[in-house]
């Protein structure tokens, strides 16, 4: 059975696309046939993060409007088997996204392409693109930074997920929504300068999928167009791997939540 997952946040710049790329790649690495769709019509970026920007021919809106079929528009990833990218349109306007059109694309991915997972990378905000990305979701990953505006926006998105998805409208109850806390800095938390993972969880009151530490690996990954989860030596890559395992039901302890305690030498001379 195909599962549709929306990666959302409300606020921009918190790591939705980084997370969508990592989650989709992680699922594909485990053998699940996965498509990641960029819903940010007009501001596509997933193609860059996935490193396939020069291979884009058709996009989501082309498929919706019938200019291309799903097979023509899907970009097969070169590094990872079972992984496909459906980019957003760069030129058309958001009104091209309709419920019927999006449903048609998702049905084609499910029935014709036999996908196991469809990851919907939501645009920021609570406008049409974000609502369309969330509408057909069976599950949600809410990406949040430990920072006041991001947490507040995430709470609004959690409210929208509870009322504006197809499952909610059909009366199936809330879709499972899990929190992914990104750009986490244990050192700043210990100094009382950053909301802790417990603080954010207490406020948002949803299950924790993972904590990704603030990491240089994320910028390096986007620079080179290779999802950070493939950087298996990096803290962020490992944190995303853990999150994918938890997403699939594994029980793993959370890592990267505390600083490495320095010895006396380090404490005296900094570093």
């Amino acid at each position: 059975m195909t599962k549709i997952v929306v990666v959302t946040s409300g606020k921009g710049g918190v790591g939705k696309t980084t997370t969508s790329a990592a989650l989709a790649t992680g699922l594909a690495l485990r053998g699940f046939k996965t498509t990641v769709i960029d819903f940010d019509v007009g501001l596509r970026n997933l193609d860059l993060i996935m490193g396939c920007e020069r291979r884009v021919v058709y996009d989501l809106v082309n498929v919706i409007s019938g200019d291309a079929n799903i097979k023509q528009a899907l970009i097969k990833d070169k590094k990872v088997d079972n992984l496909f990218i459906l980019p957003a349109s760069q030129t058309r306007d958001k009104d091209a996204l309709t419920i019927e059109g999006v449903e048609g694309v998702l049905n084609a991915l499910r029935d014709d392409m036999q996908m196991d997972y469809i990851i919907c990378d939501s645009p920021a905000g609570i406008e049409k693109g974000a609502l369309m990305a969330a509408y057909f979701a069976d599950e949600a990953v809410v990406v949040t930074n430990p920072e006041v505006s991001s947490v507040r926006d995430s709470d609004r998105i959690i409210g929208i997920l509870a009322s504006k998805t197809r499952h909610a409208e059909l009366g199936d109850g809330d879709i499972p929504s899990r929190l992914l806390l990104t750009r986490y800095s244990p050192e700043r938390v210990e100094n009382g300068q950053m909301l802790s993972v417990e603080d954010v969880q207490e406020i948002l009151a949803i299950e924790l999928l993972g904590v990704v530490p603030e990491s240089q690996a994320v910028l390096n990954a986007s620079n080179s167009g290779s999802p950070v989860i493939l950087d298996t030596d990096s803290d962020a890559g490992q944190a995303y791997s853990d999150a994918v395992a938890r997403f699939l039901g594994d029980q793993l302890p959370h890592r990267f939540l505390t600083t490495n305690k320095k010895g006396l030498f380090g404490r005296l001379f900094g570093g």
Binding site: V148, R152, N191, Q193, L195, D199
Partner: peptide
């Protein structure tokens, strides 16, 4: 330094 995280938490709640 002031503990700004607890201020943030209170305001958010």
């Amino acid at each position: 330094r002031q503990n700004t995280a607890s201020v943030a938490k209170e305001r958010l709640q």
